[in-house]
Amino acid sequence: MAKIEVLNLKKVFRTELVETLALNDVSLTVEDGEFVAIMGPSGCGKSTLLNIIGLLDTATEGRYLLDGVEVGNKSESELTNLRTGKIGFVFQSFNLIDDLTVTENIEMPLMYMDIPEKESKQRIREAMEQVGISHRAKHFPAQLSGGQQQRVAIARAVVGKPSLILADEPTGNLDSKNGQEVMELLRKLHKNGATIVMVTHSKRDAQYADRIVNLFDGQVVENVEI
């Protein structure tokens, strides 16, 4: 059974004046444990596809099966339940919460999963060690560099032990050195069994994936195994 199965997906954005077809008949399958990079020019629908895969948005038409479960007709609260503990997100702009320390930011998904305090502490420690940020545990996001912030975001994405990690241009706001470190982290996570879907502009980052899916004007134009 495929981890992700997207069939004839369409996404239309409507405003009072314009209607934009962001995704047009996109079909895509991602197997369990696969690392897929989605590439394409700006505005081709990469992030839209990732948001739909991550249950942050819904498609206008088409089917989407996550772990074989149809999710297209789920309510907002059901989608939240499906997402919890199953999907980890890494954003280009990190999206850390300014008021929370590194530890507290990483702890956040565990709070919503109702993980017991003891286990929670263990998992946070492991996640911080995994991304090498333990020495910054008490710091606030504003006190960290961009690379460190993205490491925290990755630790937050993996602390709930999700089976799927979605990364939206994870190196977009980083310099090349920090970007490379982040990609090495994702590779490590993939080797440990995580399924990763990553949106990127960078060909170098895409080389870390097993497969590259190219989008253009909302359609899959290329699907290349590496």
Binding site: G54, L56, S77, T80, N81, R83, T84, G85, F89, N95, L96, I97, D98, D99, M108, P109, M111, Y112, M113, R156, G160
Partner: peptide
């Protein structure tokens, strides 16, 4: 709002 969005992405439910 953005912060609340992040929380929701990570599973924040109504009771939280």
């Amino acid at each position: 709002m953005r912060e609340e969005g992040v929380r929701k992405v990570y599973g924040q439910k109504t009771r939280h």
